[in-house]
Design a protein around this nucleic acid. Sequence first.
DNA 1: ATGAAAGCGCTAACAT
DNA 2: ATGTTAGCGCTTTCAT
Lengths: 403, 403
Amino acid sequence: MTAAEKHQAGRNPAAVPQPPVGRCPQPRGGGRLNGRAGIRDVAAAAGVSITTVSDALNGKGRLPDTTRSHVREVAERLGYRPSAAARTLRTGKSGLIGLTVTTYGEEPFTFTEFAYFAEMARAATSAALARGYALVILPAPALRGHTTPAGNAATGAGPGPYGPDVWANVALDGTIVVDPSDQDPVVGELVRSGLPVVSDGRPSPSLPVSAWVDNDHEAAVRSLLDHLADNGARRIGLLTGTSTDTYTRVSTTAYLRWCERVGQEPVYERYPAHDPCAGAVAADRLLARPDRPDAVYGLFDPCGTDLLAAARRYGLRVPEDLMLVCCSESASYATTAPPITTLSLKPGRIGNAVAQLLIDAIEGSGPARPVQRVMPTELIVRTSSQRAGRSATVGPPRAPAAD
Amino acid sequence: MTAAEKHQAGRNPAAVPQPPVGRCPQPRGGGRLNGRAGIRDVAAAAGVSITTVSDALNGKGRLPDTTRSHVREVAERLGYRPSAAARTLRTGKSGLIGLTVTTYGEEPFTFTEFAYFAEMARAATSAALARGYALVILPAPALRGHTTPAGNAATGAGPGPYGPDVWANVALDGTIVVDPSDQDPVVGELVRSGLPVVSDGRPSPSLPVSAWVDNDHEAAVRSLLDHLADNGARRIGLLTGTSTDTYTRVSTTAYLRWCERVGQEPVYERYPAHDPCAGAVAADRLLARPDRPDAVYGLFDPCGTDLLAAARRYGLRVPEDLMLVCCSESASYATTAPPITTLSLKPGRIGNAVAQLLIDAIEGSGPARPVQRVMPTELIVRTSSQRAGRSATVGPPRAPAAD
DNA sequence: ATGAAAGCGCTAACAT
DNA sequence: ATGTTAGCGCTTTCAT
């Protein structure tokens, strides 16, 4: 009996003297190939062993090219698709990377930093795919209440806000965590279990991640304020958040330090950044103050339009009476009236870096000491922050013509 | 010998007379639990069989509560985490749903419809998580060149534009396809292989997907044009795309039909929507025409700011001289000057519906005939399209201000 | 150069 | 009520 015939005859599990003929009486298990060809079928059809099939398809072993191409041909003819689940079980590698974002409320991702997150995720996805990995979007656990470290599946606790414990049901090779919180039980558990974790944003020291990537927010704010001062701003205000996340905290501190250094009294308003309406109100408050600033930096994406609208309500011309800068990834600020200067955190670069570092950590044999990478930001200077050389004699915006 | 002792002693693969004691001489396989506890360890420590552990942890079987809680306690103490890969292999269900988007160029998702996609994906993710599924972001295959149906892995062809064939390496229970193209070999292959596929956007009839969800673009355009006409528009222009996707095609056709019905000469400009600069140029072209429209509908998200900027260059007041509507999901149009009326496709609802339908198809025993769900759109009326009661006298279409 | 066989960790059918 | 056992489909070691 040749190998092929043997396989063709069906399962032959060792030489166990079971039913008269080595054939399973009933198909068991739910995972039975749903009518599709398995590696054994290919082996049988090609007249080789399953080892040869595996080697031929994976480019392993030292098979003659004739065998290799023959096996491939047969596999294709049979529409053979290897089982990812079996491969994962066997090799211990799934090719899957988790992506999770600290959230406010019920939704799986943040709204405030939506454009940032979307672009960052896009870049990370792209980089991961290029190296053969796919990204799985996973929920951050609710911070309220208490979740046991082992998660719902093991404890049998009821489903969390997102239903069943998805984290327990997906085989990950590593995880990207955006804006990690040291309160977060899942991240802690991941790190503890030895799974590579790379974070976007500096993690708390109590979370020994494999690597992290972050902007130098402090430097970014400093140079942005310098830019405004260089353009004639005398009193720069800040529109900031009430949240305690790292970005808000670091940026606000940088502002306060800068004020102290140049001897300006800080002028700022804070608002809950996740509330879509609060920004406009806060912008109004800031411009209504007796010590009204002549330039404002807004930490969040919608601050630009909010401030612009407020300025219009107060009859302030931008940039003549009020200069504006906000932190945003939105291209729409290039075409507002006037165009608004933005600070870009370059989320694309961050997403790429995070993915690369994570995959390095997954594949790297020697887990080198944690990598920390600080990425540059970019100030995109537009009309709203350029007072010098523009004012007075430029004259009114010209009639169109065919520019 | 009790069951627990037996398990404690190590593997005992049937009664095969192998090495003196039933203990593997060397650990084989790459997937060996990396020092972490497996189900057998839990069984041993709890003094029960692995079946009991499995049942206790999964809420199956009819165990006394004492056993159940004892097992759970032991599992947690040992930090036991079930292997998702093994579960998937055994059950044939991975709990993973693919998400893929037809692309232009090298990136995994579209830029033009970024906000739409981001919101749709967020909602789909949320809905999937609530039902215990996670979303995996997968690349659309390049349409240029030819890919064999069996994919790279089986044919051994070199890696595609995204490197290795990620599709072949992930076990999916189903897939969401955004904007399916009948040219797309992957989608065809998926459908053919019997994997549930639900699409956002009507698929070509040659792709028998499990279900699809789409807006009624035709009705949306019609009612939007009616709204403009009701507000005094005499000649409505269109800013549309050069691409042949369904959205562009259907919307443009609806516009042309509407024009025919009301007896207006169509006035439109097309531009490559994926080019971030082309929009502004096209908006300019449209307003520079001798038969300049007194209202414009822009099919894409940036059209609003582009048209507003163009109107400003031509000295046209909005909405007095020019009314504006664009299709967008961006909240920033609420705070432009003036605020711009937008057509929202409600991507959140679509994402939710797509995910629910897909999971229904995955879990539903009887695969009912394909479900087709048409979702409503929403016209968010703002200043830019409300002329009545605003301007003193509407009068006839005025001569261009800056001619 | 090719094949046989041992499992990866888990679930479910079948005993007891 | 609990335990035994046969695999899910694949990769890999070892033998030929």
